[in-house]
């Protein structure tokens, strides 16, 4: 499975001040598949996700031990270039967060900060990313309108397009549908299904049906520990651990 693995964590621990939020998490994320992280609120699934592109650097008083290996390197090693890492591992947030700029500018922002100036090339990247995020037809006639005028679901797909525009290898999604209605959710889920042909997707969700629908692999977390992880069908139909079974059958959480 090692050739097949894109990220692996090794005995990862994380503290927010006194709180031991992640406890010896070791897992492997398979390449070009969708991996879901599930578990009750506060179990550490979002924290784990934010470790993968070091977004936890923005939080004060965080201490991390153990390693996360990506591209044969520990991303928490002192010399890591965080900026390059985040270019390779993009992120989509819980609440859609388009910049207060036009739709075009939002998507072009990423390639621009990575040094692409040529207008024709930018146009091409913007169109390709928007098509890929299944939102092109809805916005192609109003590229210069403010992105804040889009609906919540459209904003979220725009944010996905924005992430795709820098051509990452991995896309992290932190409960991307929790602020959306069922129709918008269905569109995002279809999109995730299409994305796995080219990208590795890691999605955090509190919605078990969603995990079952979109993911190939699932990790179940509880109180900062990774209780069980494996093929989604297996986790949902024949969980090995009792905790997992209780959670999935709705006995707590």
């Amino acid at each position: 499975m090692s050739e097949h693995t894109i990220i692996s964590t090794n005995n990862l621990n994380l503290w927010y001040q006194e709180k031991h939020a992640l406890q010896s998490v070791s897992m492997k994320i398979p390449k070009k598949h969708v991996t879901a992280l599930i578990g009750p609120s506060g179990c550490g699934k979002s924290t784990l996700l934010r470790c993968f592109n070091r977004m936890n650097d923005l939080v004060d008083h965080v201490k991390i031990t153990g390693e996360i290996v990506f591209d044969d390197e520990n991303i928490h090693a002192p010399g890591t270039d965080v900026v390059t890492l985040r270019k390779k591992i993009g992120m989509v947030f819980q609440k859609p967060n388009p910049f207060p700029k036009s739709i075009y500018e939002n998507v072009a922002y990423g390639p621009r900060v990575h040094g692409i100036r040529d207008t024709a090339e930018l146009d091409k990247i913007v169109e390709r990313s928007l098509r890929h995020a299944a939102i092109w037809d809805e916005v192609k006639d109003r590229m210069n309108d403010s992105a804040l005028g889009l609906s919540g679901g459209q904003q979220q797909r725009l944010c996905i397009a924005r992430t795709l525009a820098v051509e990452p290898e991995v896309i992290l999604m932190d409960e991307p549908c929790s602020a959306l209605d069922p129709i918008a959710t269905a569109k995002i889920e279809n999109l995730i299904d299409m994305l796995k042909a080219d990208y590795t997707v890691i999605i955090v969700t509190h919605n078990m049906q969603q995990a079952a629908r979109v993911s190939d692999y699932t990790g179940f977390m509880y109180l900062g520990k990774l209780i069980e992880c494996g093929i989604t069908a297996q986790i949902f139909e024949h969980p090995k651990e009792e905790l997992t079974e209780n959670y999935i059958t709705g006995r707590f959480g």
């Binding site: 592109n53 977004m55 923005l58 900026v83 390059t84 890492l85 985040r86 270019k87 390779k88 993009g90 992120m91 947030f93 609440k95 967060n97 388009p98 910049f99 207060p100 922002y109 990423g110 621009r112 900060v113 990575h114 944010c159 924005r162 992430t163 820098v166």
Partner: peptide, 22 residues
Amino acid sequence: PCEYREGSLAIGATRWQTISKV
């Protein structure tokens, strides 16, 4: 909003790019 900052950093923009452009 903090979300703008996170959104920009998550794309791989540097801190200065985030400050000056967003």
